[in-house]
């Protein structure tokens, strides 16, 4: 058990596995995402209330879904960094934080553009959009703190503490923003919550969510490999690997 755990923590082992996994993640993910989007854009029926603008859902929901789960993954990795001092966990946090920020931004952007035909304005201080905005701030905080501390080890642990503090706060933020929203606005109809969604709508949605997950996996592997190469540049295996790639 512990041997597997140590192996999991070994950058060299991860590098090899990632190289093997990455083509699969990318191509299967891209195929699923494209299939979901084409299905959603061209073949899914029109929404009776929102018309065709609802077709934004097929990228809005995957982006929003992933934006939140990436932060939770980062928190798990942060816990691993603090408890077991596993180098790879911190590599993961560093590698995916910008990706998470971009996904959060995309969820916000698509939500805002969707709001224009639905609500008649680009931005509404709706509970979901607002908590997404706060999530974006949390991502920026993680990236800023990571960049500010130069020492690799303390930077890793400080970022881990911050991510964990953030993840404890996420449910509180969500809850309080929802409460605040009901206080200030009469219930508007929500973008993504439907009483019942026909299969022609949710199947492509599921496809695009899963596809984006796999593509995120590919991006995470790629960026982690880069980070490992930078950090482990002095080790023999990196030198050998680099030579082999170059020739």
């Amino acid at each position: 058990m512990w041997q597997i755990f140590h192996k999991l923590g070994s950058p060299k082992w991860f590098f090899g596995i990632a190289s093997k996994l990455m083509p699969w993640l990318l191509w299967v993910g891209a195929a699923m995402l494209v299939a979901g989007i084409v299905w959603g854009l061209g073949f899914a029926p029109k929404d009776y209330l929102q018309g065709n603008s609802y077709r934004i859902i097929f990228i809005h929901v995957p982006a929003a879904f992933l934006a939140q789960s990436v932060y939770i993954m980062m928190a798990v990795a942060g816990l691993v960094t603090l408890v077991w001092r596993m180098k790879l966990a911190d590599v993961f946090v560093r590698a995916v934080a910008p990706v998470g920020a971009i996904l959060t931004f995309l969820a916000l952007f698509t939500g805002a553009v969707w709001g224009k035909p639905t609500w008649g304005t680009w931005w509404i201080w709706d509970a979901r959009l607002t908590s997404m905005l706060i999530l974006l701030f949390l991502y920026f905080g993680v990236m800023a703190l990571g960049a500010a501390i130069s020492d690799e080890k303390s930077s890793a642990r400080a970022v881990a503490v911050l991510v964990l503090v953030g993840v404890v706060n996420i449910p509180i933020i969500k809850y309080s923003v929802e409460w605040w929203n009901t206080l200030h606005q009469p219930a508007t109809f929500k973008l993504t919550e439907k009483p019942s969604m026909p299969a022609e709508m949710w199947v492509p949605l599921l496809l695009s969510v899963l596809g984006l997950y796999l593509i995120f996996g590919w991006l995470a592997c790629l960026r982690m490999q880069t980070e490992i190469l930078v950090r482990e540049g002095r080790t023999r295996w990196v030198k050998e690997l680099v030579q082999a790639r170059g020739n």
Partner: peptide, 20 residues
């Protein structure tokens, strides 16, 4: 500045409930 950046998002629930 960094301190404000890290902490303000965490202050939001307190602010919401305080003013609410």
């Amino acid at each position: 500045v960094l301190l404000s950046l890290l902490i303000i998002p965490l202050y939001i629930p307190v602010l919401i409930f305080g003013t609410g």
